[in-house]
Simulated scan of single mutants.
Amino acid sequence: MTSLDSAHPLAAGLTAASRLVRSYQGEHQEVTPVWFMRQAGRSLPEYRELRVGMRMLDACLDPAMASEITLQPVRRHGVDAGIFFSDIVVPLKLAGVAVEIQPGKGPVFERPVRTLDDVKRLEETDPASMDDATFAPIAEAVRLTTAELGETPLIGFAGAPFTLAAYLVEGGPSKDHIRARTLMHADPEAWSRLMAWTADISGAFLRAQVLAGASAAQLFDSWAGSLSLADYTEHVAPASARALSHVRDLTYAVPVAPPHVPLQASVRQDGEPAVRNVPLVHFGVGTGDLLKAMHEVGADAVGVDYRTPLDEASRRLGHVVPVQGNVDPAMLAAPWEVLAPHVETVLRRGLDAPAHVLNLGHGVPPETDPAVLTRVVELVHGWRP
Rank of each mutant, 00 (worst) to 15 (best):
T2L: 15
P9D: 07
R19Y: 08
S23Y: 08
G26K: 05
G26T: 03
R38K: 10
R38F: 08
A40F: 15
V52W: 06
G53A: 11
R55A: 11
P63T: 01
A64P: 04
M65S: 09
I69D: 14
G82K: 09
V89F: 00
I101W: 05
I101F: 13
T125Y: 01
D126I: 04
D126N: 15
M130F: 01
F135P: 01
E140R: 15
T146E: 10
T146D: 08
P153K: 07
G156A: 14
F157G: 12
A160M: 00
P161Q: 02
F162W: 10
T163F: 02
A166F: 03
A166D: 05
L168P: 04
G171D: 00
H177Y: 14
A180W: 01
A180S: 13
T198P: 01
D200F: 03
L206N: 12
A212D: 07
G213P: 05
S215E: 10
A216T: 13
L227A: 00
H235M: 14
A243L: 02
L244Q: 08
L250W: 07
T251A: 15
H260T: 12
S266N: 00
R268Y: 03
V278W: 04
T287L: 12
M294V: 06
H295S: 05
G298I: 04
D300M: 11
D305W: 11
A313W: 07
L317P: 10
V320H: 13
V323R: 09
N326W: 07
A330P: 08
A334M: 11
W336I: 04
L339T: 06
H342K: 05
H342R: 06
V364Y: 04
V364F: 06
P365E: 07
E367F: 07
E367C: 10
D369H: 08
A371P: 09
V372K: 08
L373D: 12
V376R: 00
V377T: 14
